[in-house]
Structure formats: structure tokens, C-alpha cells
Amino acid sequence: MNNGPVVVAFCCNYCSYEAADRAGSAKKNYPENLRIIRVPCSGRVEPEFIVKAFENGADGVMILGCHPGSCHFKTGNHKAYRRYLLLKEILRAAGIDEERVKLDWVGASEDDKLVRVSTEFVEKIRELDTGGG
């Protein structure tokens, strides 16, 4: 059964994980390709996790954290953002399409944004896969 790309999303317990729950309660569909892993904070996400996901066959990885300035743990999301910036540079140099990794800010109430961002991302990955990216 080919269900298309596999996308792992690291969701912060205090924002995007909550937004995903709200999207569920509101029955707002998004692609089944998204596999959410709950983390206490986007700042818990190690760059190794992202590469690990690729090693295991993921086609795309998202990190969804709190908006800048509203991290539950004050600044974990900023750290996640800076790691993401550097990781993208490394991926680019290594020849891995940096677009396969995406960090975005999704607040707890932004179920619509979660649905939009994840749908768009899965679409993007599908394009890269079919386009040989």
C-alpha cells in the first residue's frame, strides 16, 4: 500500500500539540501522512532527531513550536529556531533538499494554521518526491 510520503511532526505539548487536538475536536482533516511526536518543548528537539527520522524513511520533518516570545519554557522555541537555521545550512551543503525540514510557529488556538501548514508541507514533500527532489 503506497500512502505517499511519511512526515514526522515534532509538536510542542503546549502549543502545536494542543492545536492538533483542537483540529481533531473540530474534525478538520489533514493528510494522514502526518505522524505527530509529542515533545515537552520545541527546544527538546535535537537535530539528531530530524536526521534520525530521515534515516528511518521519513520524507519530511516538521518542528512546530510556540510563537517567538510565547514559549511555555520562555525561550526553548528560539533555540529550536536557531538550530533549525544551522541544520538547514548543513543539509543544503550535504545535498539534502532543505525544504524537507520545516519549522513553524503554531499557537495552541491555531488549529487552522496547523491544518494549513501540515497540508501544505505534505503537498510540498509529495512534489519533491515525484519531482525527484
Binding site: E46, P47, E48, V51, R83, L87
Partner: peptide, 8 residues
């Protein structure tokens, strides 16, 4: 990657 995580 470990160094990246630390320095970032």
C-alpha cells in the same frame, strides 16, 4: 549535529 545543537 551535536556541536550544532550546542552552538545554536
Amino acid at each position: 549535529l551535536r556541536f550544532l545543537s550546542n552552538i545554536a
